[in-house]
Design a binder for these strands. Structure first.
Length: 425
DNA sequence: TCTGGGGTCCTAGGACCC
DNA sequence: TCTGGGGTCCTAGGACCC
């Protein structure tokens, strides 16, 4: 059996742990730049506030209903996620972290003969240690565990658990799950399936596998098999090395100046280099892109993009920034209002398997860089991000995100520690 | 004024090899 | 009526996830 543990309204729950005044009130969390709604409390869901809705279009509605609107605080959510995952891992060692708020557990080797008892225990301990409420779905395949989790959430607003351990329960859960809510079915496949009269997960489970394979590839075939209880996806407890790493942001204000764009792109590149070093990898390709605001048809539109092959794979902040600046120079055109820029690195290889180049490879310089960067990572780890940085990243940050209502970094910054006197119930 | 960010997998088709 | 056969690598595009 697999269990899918999913944190309820995760970002809102994180905020509530440190600010109990948010309990029982409608709360929404906005995406970067305070753009769209990306998390909602149950009270906000009940008001009909949609996931992904642009905040500026809902201003009045949010005010009218006295909805608490907050910017997202990823330092907090990331840290709370680690705590939840660590707690789960202590209870069930075979764990796959599937996303910031979800984990699959492999229950095969657990001493509990009664999975529901285990679910109750997991909920209780995670709640006690972290303050985060979770919902648990248990079934014989990952896809069915997803179905069970969804079913549990629908059944009780508070979120609890559901275990698909008999054929009757399986059929029932599938029958009441809309096909669009199946893991792996998005907008396009929903359209296709609805047109064939396939409306529920049960309909899909009973569909001819050959037809599904023809129209939805092997991914669809596996989905159907998993819905029937035939396991196609095992637990992946070892995180796979990334094939591409991307850092990109929308700007708080449109950017027209080359030097500001340079600072932003240099900062994104530094972030990508950090991520590469963290997984002991280096990249062969660097992709620079920047574009204008497509929601402004009154302004001239432009999408600039350039991929550069590095002579030797690298994870050096200095080297990658130099390459990125060359790319940006080729891409930048004067006279546009840039909305967003980013860096993507790919062609990723393990750091210790970098193919050297006969002519441009300077072993000594690389070794010096490596030492300097290790020191830089240690300093920034201890003293905070960008305590030491490359000058090109600048001090200006006028391209900076809008984050008008962000909570404090309660768990990751000493100056933001909660004081007990802050809590007035 | 204003609409997120970061990923994965699969397939088809073209270019090329012997 | 009847194209040779068996491969690899790369890219673009489409679908999906949270």
């Amino acid at each position: 059996m697999f269990a899918l543990v999913d944190c309820n309204n995760f970002y809102v729950s994180c905020e509530r742990v440190f600010d109990p005044k948010l309990e029982n009130r409608p709360v929404v969390i906005l995406s970067n730049n305070d753009g769209c709604v990306i998390a909602r409390s149950n009270e906000a869901k009940a008001l009909g506030i949609q996931m992904g809705a642009p905040a500026f279009l809902m201003q009045k509605e949010l005010e009218k209903n006295e909805v608490v609107v907050m910017s997202s605080n990823y330092a907090l959510y990331g840290d709370m996620s680690n705590r939840v995952m660590q707690t789960l891992h202590e209870l069930v060692p075979a764990l796959e972290v599937y996303s910031i708020d979800e984990a699959f557990l492999d229950l095969r080797n657990m001493p509990y003969s009664d999975p529901e008892r285990l679910a109750r225990r997991l909920r209780k301990i995670v709640g006690h240690y972290t303050g985060i409420p979770v919902t648990i779905g248990i079934a014989s395949t990952k896809t069915l565990a997803k179905v069970a989790n969804r079913y549990a959430k629908k059944r009780t607003a508070a979120g609890a658990y559901y275990c698909i351990d008999t054929d009757a329960k399986q059929e029932h859960a599938l029958a009441v799950t809309a096909v669009e809510d199946v893991w792996g079915i998005g907008r396009q496949y929903t359209k296709l399936l609805e047109s064939q009269g396939i409306h529920t997960a049960l309909d899909l489970a009973l569909t001819d596998v050959a037809w599904v394979k023809k129209h939805m590839s092997v991914v669809g075939e596996r989905m159907v098999r998993e819905l029937c209880g035939q396991c196609c996806y095992d637990l992946e407890d070892q995180p796979q090395p990334k094939k591409g790493i991307c850092t990109s942001r929308s700007f708080g204000h449109p950017v027209t100046e080359y030097s500001i764009l340079q600072e932003a792109v240099a900062t994104f590149t530094a972030r990508c280099a950090e991520k590469l070093r963290k997984q002991n990898a280096a990249a062969n390709l660097l992709h620079v892109f920047t574009f204008t605001n497509r929601h402004r048809p009154d302004q001239p539109q432009y999408y600039g993009s350039k991929v550069i092959q590095l002579p030797v794979a690298s994870n050096s902040t200095m080297e990658l920034i130099q390459v990125a600046m060359r790319g940006l120079e080729l891409v930048f055109k004067k006279g546009y209002y840039y909305k967003k820029a980013g860096i993507m690195v790919s062609g990723i290889v393990p750091e210790n398997q970098v193919q050297a180049d006969l002519f441009s490879f300077d072993q000594r310089k690389r070794e010096l860089d490596r030492k300097a960067l290790a020191a830089l990572d240690r300093i920034n780890q201890r003293m905070g991000r960008d305590t030491v940085k490359v000058a090109m990243q600048g001090y200006n940050r006028s391209w900076h995100l809008r984050q008008e209502r962000r909570s404090r970094c309660y768990t990751t910054r000493w100056t933001d520690l909660l004081e007990v006197g802050d809590l007035r119930f």
